[in-house]
Computed example of a mutant assay.
Amino acid sequence: MSLSVDVFVVGADGERQVQDVPDGCSDSAGFENWRTRVWGSQVVRSLGAGFFPVLADTDLQVDPEQVPAFLRECLLLRENLEKIVAGIEPVRTTTDYRDAISARLANVEDAARRGLAMGGGVLIW
């Protein structure tokens, strides 16, 4: 199984409405084991991340008003990719692993920017 990242808006009925992934975008947020292996890892926690580590226990819902803070946390992870990769036992070469994490983080960042633009939130599940 894989983790997906989606944008949602809250409808007039108060219900969360997950938006379709636009053409040319990816909803891949990593493999299911990345909940603990990457996003919820000790090294990510040690950076002061608060959103991503939630994935170790449950799905992550970033409400619309939290998206700016979530984007700042994405930037924190991006700026510390080398440290993250060094703190996780890679299943491939270090370069391949860094590139894979970077690509999935780019998908998350893209979804967060789309959510911000439409007044929506982000769901990683």
Rank of each mutant, 00 (worst) to 15 (best):
A106F: 10
A29L: 01
W39L: 05
V91K: 13
Y97A: 05
T36H: 11
G30W: 00
V21M: 05
G14E: 07
R72C: 11
I124A: 03
V7H: 05
P90F: 01
A86K: 09
L105M: 08
T95N: 08
R113Q: 13
I84R: 02
F52T: 02
D99W: 03
G121R: 04
G11L: 10
A100L: 12
A86C: 05
P53G: 06
V5I: 09
A49T: 04
V7Y: 06
R16F: 11
G30R: 00
P90D: 05
V44R: 00
A69D: 15
I124L: 10
T36V: 10
D99S: 12
V9L: 12
V108P: 00
Q19V: 09
K83L: 14
E15V: 10
V9S: 12
T58K: 13
I84M: 08
Q19M: 15
E109H: 03
N107I: 00
T94R: 12
E15L: 15
P22G: 04
A69S: 15
G30C: 05
G119Q: 06
D6V: 04
A69W: 12
G119C: 09
V9K: 13
L3I: 04
R35W: 02
T94I: 09
I84H: 03
T93R: 05
Q42F: 07
M118D: 08
N107Q: 03
K83S: 11
D63F: 11
A112Q: 00
P90H: 03
L75N: 13
R113T: 10
D110V: 08
E15A: 14
